[in-house]
């Protein structure tokens, strides 16, 4: 390991919240990877479908057999574990696709400037003007329910953020003296962009992507909660919360009676979002202290 990366390493781990984020993320990755061992699916069944464990639709509080309890006839523990995979899948697919789209659009706008920039940025503005959740909701309704539809809706309404960021960064880096210096040497435009501009503007995009990962999962869960996401019984944190909709207030005099229905999937979501945010923060501190507010 060279000196530079050693320093990063040190910086990364000297910070408690960075370590916490990293550990949480590793934990979730572990859960996702080892899901078949942690919550073994019934052989021959689609592992992503939560098996039905009881015939009564009443929630059952945590017990030895069902450590997180039972909601909507399904084991919450199983749902939380396999839901981790769903969360990663939604997050990664949406983030990568939207970042790639944003990268291309933002680079074109920032590099060519003038009319092209004007046009692309106005389109971006229009997309940004629509409230995210509402837009995704409408689109998902039009496309119909289903995880893939939710993913498409999320991509369509989140590419603008990386596009904006990369454009701003390119505009800024374009003015840096080392870019001028490269031009003065006679380096061609494409090489200037590839060698001098992009490498210096890509990190903020990656950092933003990791921060967005968390909030995407929340949105996806919100759509599921509204019944628009995954099909009935699909292992998904939002869907688990959906089961809690009718039971949230508990029964007379026992407001918190069904706490387990919301707490376990909710906690998973909160920690997942936290993990990505902390890791994003840490990346930001390492790569570019200037970005700190």
């Amino acid at each position: 390991m060279n000196r530079g990366s050693k320093r990063w390493f040190k910086k990364f781990f000297s910070n408690f919240s960075a370590v916490l984020g990293f550990v949480l993320l590793l934990f979730f990755l572990g859960v996702a990877l080892f899901a078949p061992y942690i919550a073994p699916p019934k052989p021959g069944r689609d592992a992503y479908m939560m098996p039905i464990v009881t015939w009564s639709s009443d929630p059952i509080p945590p017990s030895r057999e069902h450590p997180f309890g039972v909601a909507g006839k399904r084991d919450i523990f199983y749902g939380v574990v396999w839901g981790t995979r769903t969360a990663f899948r939604i997050g990664i697919i949406v983030t990568i696709s939207s970042t790639l789209i944003g990268l291309v659009i933002g680079s074109i706008a920032g590099y060519f400037g003038h009319l092209v920039d004007e046009l692309l940025m106005r389109v971006t503005d229009i997309f940004m003007a629509v409230p995210f959740l509402v837009a995704a909701l409408v689109l998902a309704t039009i496309l119909g329910a289903g995880l893939d539809k939710v993913i498409i809706a999320l991509i369509v309404f989140s590419w603008m953020y990386p596009a904006r960021l990369i454009r701003g960064n390119i505009l800024q880096v374009k003015e840096e003296q080392f870019v001028m210096a490269a031009k003065a040497l006679g380096v061609s435009d494409l090489v200037v962009i590839l060698r001098h501009v992009l490498p210096n503007s890509i990190f903020p995009v990656l950092i933003q992507a990791s921060m967005r990962m968390g909030s995407l999962v929340i949105t996806a869960a919100a759509l599921s909660f509204l019944g628009l996401g995954a099909p009935q019984g699909y292992a998904d944190w939002g869907a688990l919360l959906n089961y809690a909709r009718n039971w949230m207030l508990g029964s007379q005099g026992q407001a918190l009676q069904y706490w387990f229905m919301t707490v376990f999937p909710g906690l998973a979501m909160v920690l997942f979002v936290l993990a990505w945010n902390l890791v994003g923060d840490a990346l930001r501190d390492i790569f570019d202290p200037r970005l700190r507010v």
């Binding site: 003296q177 080392f178 210096a181 003065a184 380096v187 060698r195 210096n200």
Partner: peptide, 28 residues
Amino acid sequence: MQMIFQDPFGSLNPRMRIGSIIEEGMSV
């Protein structure tokens, strides 16, 4: 015709090694 820039911090690409910075013009 070449230029020497004002800002010793901003005028060198932070992600390139000194060797490649000096060599770039010659290879171009």
